[in-house]
Design a protein around this nucleic acid. Structure first.
Lengths: 204, 204
DNA sequence: GCCTGTGAAGCTATTCACAGCT
DNA sequence: AGCTGTGAATAGCTTCACAGGC
């Protein structure tokens, strides 16, 4: 059973919204309420939740706690996934601050940077290693995923090292379309493209 | 004629790839060559380029310079668009460093932050104003677009101020689904969702 | 009555396939 | 021969609409 990128993205969103609801003390939620928070439609929410096998009650809606649990079974790996950050510039530091602590299902276990000044330091609890130890350290630590936050010209070479180290997924911030071998998932998060789109559609 | 978000995104990508090609000294390019760089297909590239009205030659392909020009006519506003950055934390500083200089079609003209320590300082050539002057300064400067890089709980209030100031488009980095009035385009760049997807698909 | 789960319809995006050009 | 531009076919996604449950 193959679930699309779109659907997985929305499931991640729903889980976040459900956690907010749980914090607000809600016990049950209807698809149209969740849809309102997700800026989506009730039909879309119900269709997406079908993949979970979890069923709501027509009378009460979905039990918030149970639905969060079902989403977590579906979305999360059985064990915590280890992430490597490659490139500790402005963006890399922002990402460390952003992800540390907040997400129980991943840990940014190690970082890498080419600057010898940064190597050996610990930022947000994450030790910075030399770029040329990437393959070795990534294997040693059993890294599953990586975030690439290096300048564009270096991104493809970094990715190649990560593939050799057996990485399974990459989140790439460099404005370069990475080649990836069969079986490795790459997501391109292209901030320039996004701003370009905002500029285009913002003026109608 | 309404062009979809997907198509506009890919056109932005093609322009970037074409600029690389121009730097490499290429005069002409075939759709299959551009597709290879975009990790896409020749048919997709040709279909996307149809919206430009620009036509390639079956013998030589597309003239790189002319195609860049046609893309720029289509994608860019007649005058340079002014962008406000709201939130000068780690991420905001990364964005300033990332966008400054590199994109002739936008300028990050002003930034805003709630921290009085930061107000009055200039980062990457961009002056930081107090958060409560947002509406006033945005109007004064004639700001078209905004980037929201504040913590999640503040994002919706910031957006509301921006709408009042007549902003037309927002690029939102806060993990919150923003409400927007008719006619304002909002793009959500959700890094947590992206990493979650990489985690999901990276393990197959 | 108002909800859920879901088959079927409707819509959008991508890919195929080929006429026409050089 | 090998390309482009594009109608037609296909695949993928979203919305409709309704049976069944409380």
């Amino acid at each position: 059973m193959g679930v699309s990128e779109r659907v997985v993205g929305r499931l991640i969103l729903y889980r976040r919204l459900l956690k907010d609801l749980a914090d607000e003390g809600a016990g049950y939620v209807f698809s149209h309420e969740l849809a309102a928070r997700a800026k989506s439609t009730a039909a879309q929410v119900r269709r997406d939740l079908m993949v979970l096998g979890y069923m709501g009650s027509p009378a009460r809606g979905y039990a918030v706690r149970d639905l969060i649990a079902a989403l977590s079974v579906f979305l999360d790996a059985p064990e915590r996934q280890k992430v490597a950050l490659v490139g500790v510039g402005n963006l890399g530091r922002a990402l460390l601050a952003y992800f540390v602590g907040r997400h129980p299902q991943f840990t940014i276990a190690v970082a890498f940077d080419a600057d010898p000044q940064k190597v050996g330091r610990v930022v947000n609890g994450c030790p910075i290693h030399a770029m040329d130890s990437l393959g070795q350290v990534a294997r040693q630590e059993g890294i599953d995923l990586a975030i690439i936050a290096v300048p564009a010209p270096e991104a493809q070479a970094v990715a190649a090292e990560l593939y050799k180290a057996g990485i399974r997924g990459i989140l790439n911030f460099a404005p370069v379309r990475l080649w990836a071998p069969e079986g490795v998932y790459v997501e391109h998060l292209d901030m320039t493209m996004s701003l370009g789109r905002v500029a285009y559609f913002g003026r109608r």
